[in-house]
Design a protein around this nucleic acid. Sequence first.
DNA 1: CTGAAAGCGCTTACAG
DNA 2: CTGAAAGCGCTTACAG
Lengths: 348, 348
Amino acid sequence: MSVLGTNSKTALTSRDIANLSGVSQSTVSRVLSGHPNVSAKTRKRVTEVLRETGFVPNASARAMRTQRSRSIGLVVSTPVNLYAMEVMREVHEHVARHRLRLSVWLADTDGNAPDALQALRERSVDGLIYTSAVDQMPELEADISAGAPIVLMGRTIRGIPTDTVAGANVQGGRRVAEYLLENGRRDVALVGGRAFSPGREIEQGFRQRLESLGSPLADNRIIYGDLSYGSGEHALEQLWNGKKKPDAIFCVNDLVAYGALDAARKMKIRIPEDLWVVGYNNITMSEWAAYDLTTVQLPIAPMAEISVELLLRRIDGEQTPTPKRRRVEGALLVRGSTAHAPAAPSTK
Amino acid sequence: MSVLGTNSKTALTSRDIANLSGVSQSTVSRVLSGHPNVSAKTRKRVTEVLRETGFVPNASARAMRTQRSRSIGLVVSTPVNLYAMEVMREVHEHVARHRLRLSVWLADTDGNAPDALQALRERSVDGLIYTSAVDQMPELEADISAGAPIVLMGRTIRGIPTDTVAGANVQGGRRVAEYLLENGRRDVALVGGRAFSPGREIEQGFRQRLESLGSPLADNRIIYGDLSYGSGEHALEQLWNGKKKPDAIFCVNDLVAYGALDAARKMKIRIPEDLWVVGYNNITMSEWAAYDLTTVQLPIAPMAEISVELLLRRIDGEQTPTPKRRRVEGALLVRGSTAHAPAAPSTK
DNA sequence: CTGAAAGCGCTTACAG
DNA sequence: CTGAAAGCGCTTACAG
């Protein structure tokens, strides 16, 4: 079964198969690739030898000839990030469907992953999906401008001409503003982050809609952080230290909301009686009873699918005058962190 | 800066650099690899051209010549798995330290990842770290027996001669048994899983120690599941439906414990007053106030480091008569899910 | 110290 | 339908 031999030293080549089958190496290659110009009889004989030996062609040799590694890279951000895990799962699925391999780089805290760009340059991967880009990444921008096959997923960079697949975040922020005001919230706060594009977009939609509904967000009702769990804890403590407490907090991602909810738990703030909390992304844990978080769904599966499709087209050399920018909408899911009784109980 | 040219069509080769520098292609190669046989003057001239052009050598060509892809593969299991994310982070770090790339495969629910083995056979990766192996994986076992460079991390397979790096699970199970009995628990239950080796080992240590302390585990005090969040919920409900309730539940991983804790939350069972819950692994979330879970630490960082080291040695052809089997110990961390007051409050 | 040359293992025109 | 040959872009003896 295994082709690795007793010692990894004995790897077969297509020439060995040729000798064993009594045909030329070219013919073996044709059989392997399913090329039509092979007689049924020859094909059968070679196929038999292939099966017996368990031969597997060498990927580097193929890559060198074809100029394709059949591998793509994914850059995800680093900390305990359940969002990243779900992104990986979905991207992996679509990549595997195209019979490609997936290499992964964990970006540093600034969202940077120079090794991934290096791998692209040395042709170890055919393209990259970036899920952690921030503004001001000169290296990345230079490669993109030079036509490198890179897709941004869930992130945008101002003024950079790449294909982008992201959530409809402005709209998501708007939707939350409407929901909170329509349900009687009078003093809402935002826990955001300016370093990442989704954070900025959500904030924009949220602010605009609050304003248009006549309840503009006061300056002391916005707290910016690094979008970590700890930043959510910290934001809640800070808001609760003021003399007037907000009656709702909107966190621009679920992880931050968990931090806020856990801080509330420690401070004996009752959810949702004393305070409503809303998140963004709807990662799996948000459904769990510990958080039971009202949140805006970020449809990762379709985003992953579209990202892979766009990337493959770029790799195949499709030239588009203007980069494609797709936005994927998600619904607001109401759960126990805002409704007085859970509106969407876990029915698992 | 970018070497990708305007159109990805213009990738330079070392021959181009040779022409631009007025030396042979061999010399360019020597400069790139830092070979000593290059005069200072020549080296300087070539280095300058290299810098100006931003040349990056082609990885496939190098791999073909050197028979090394400089890439290793990691197989992790699929569902919402924070453990997997932490494993990835640590392995990625050590892999990057050795200037290697990391390819990732998400295994199916049975822990299988045929694509990873295929990548190894076609030499796309130099070796694999498996974190999701179960017994009965004929393909994997065949390749291992044939000498393929594969390390099992956090898993063992009976009778298979590979390097293995795992937690000291029998000991961990023992430790929990002692802790519970020494702290007055009289009726403890185990939520386990037989499909995975850590589950079996933890169970073994736990049972043995309970027995040696005079409180053997009754048959109706063991519930087996698939080690998912849902299996924890389900186990708790089942245990609580009996006429006599246990006063402590030991879950063989943290994710299962979260399920149990959330089921308890819904059923208004007070933790720890009515029930103690203990987990295993100590993933990041276990420290969060929502769960505040007493658990046995699984030291992923050292496990990842050792796994990478062992794998690289195997790849470098080190022949060991007997496979190396390392066990890494972790401490029991007492938190609020068992102590009446948290013994180790989050001091963040 | 330097260059010409072989060769890693494939794919793919080209000739028959 | 089949084979001999070129060539992908490197590394590394080998000869000088």
